[in-house]
Simulated assay, not measured.
Amino acid sequence: MEDGDLLSRALDFYGLPKKFDANLVRSRFRELSRKYHPDSGEYETDILFKELVQLRDVLLSSLQNDPFAILENSKEDPEGFQFYKSAKQKAAQAIEKYFQFTDGNPVYLKKEDNPALLRLRQELETAKNGLEEFLEKFPKSIWKEDTETTLKKISVWFKD
């Protein structure tokens, strides 16, 4: 089954709209787990509960893969904090993953000396694009200065 089909199935199972956030997924999971859990729900078998858990993971991972598409249209966030936060988290996670991968070895900023740098740059590119898009969409946000500082720090990883 393709990722899109699995996501559609998850949305149907959870009864969610196409635009959702992690809080909505968690809230709906709590509701449905009361219904489907074999110890306390309406069903004695754990098949539906396992399906519920698997599809929750699909929904949450789809948010991690493309958080900007969902947060972009949020009307409850006029200053863009969730958009900003998501981009900052992507950058921090990419750098943390890089350092875990290199396990404290010296950091080389030349591609030929450090093949893991290419992967880091790809992951940081997504965060960088998100931060730049944040600046375009929310030019008067209180997080503008921090966003610009973060972009300067990220740019270090792209120097050869």
Rank of each mutant, 00 (worst) to 15 (best):
G4F: 15
K19H: 10
K111D: 13
F20V: 11
L120S: 04
S61E: 09
R9M: 14
F13I: 02
L55T: 00
K19Q: 05
T150L: 13
A92D: 12
K140P: 11
E96N: 15
P115Q: 00
L71Q: 02
Q82L: 12
I70H: 14
E96P: 01
N73P: 02
Y43H: 13
I70C: 13
G4Q: 15
L16W: 12
P106G: 05
L7N: 04
R28N: 02
G4E: 11
F134V: 04
S62I: 02
P139R: 00
I70D: 10
S27D: 05
F29K: 07
Y14D: 11
M1N: 10
K97L: 08
E112M: 10
Y14Q: 02
D113Q: 15
F29Y: 09
L32G: 03
T45S: 13
Y43I: 08
L117S: 05
K18M: 14
G41V: 02
N105M: 14
Y84V: 04
S33N: 09
A91M: 00
F83S: 05
K140I: 12
R56S: 11
D113Y: 06
D12V: 14
F99R: 00
R119H: 09
S40L: 14
L131Q: 04
R34N: 12
L131V: 00
V156P: 01
N105W: 03
K85T: 01
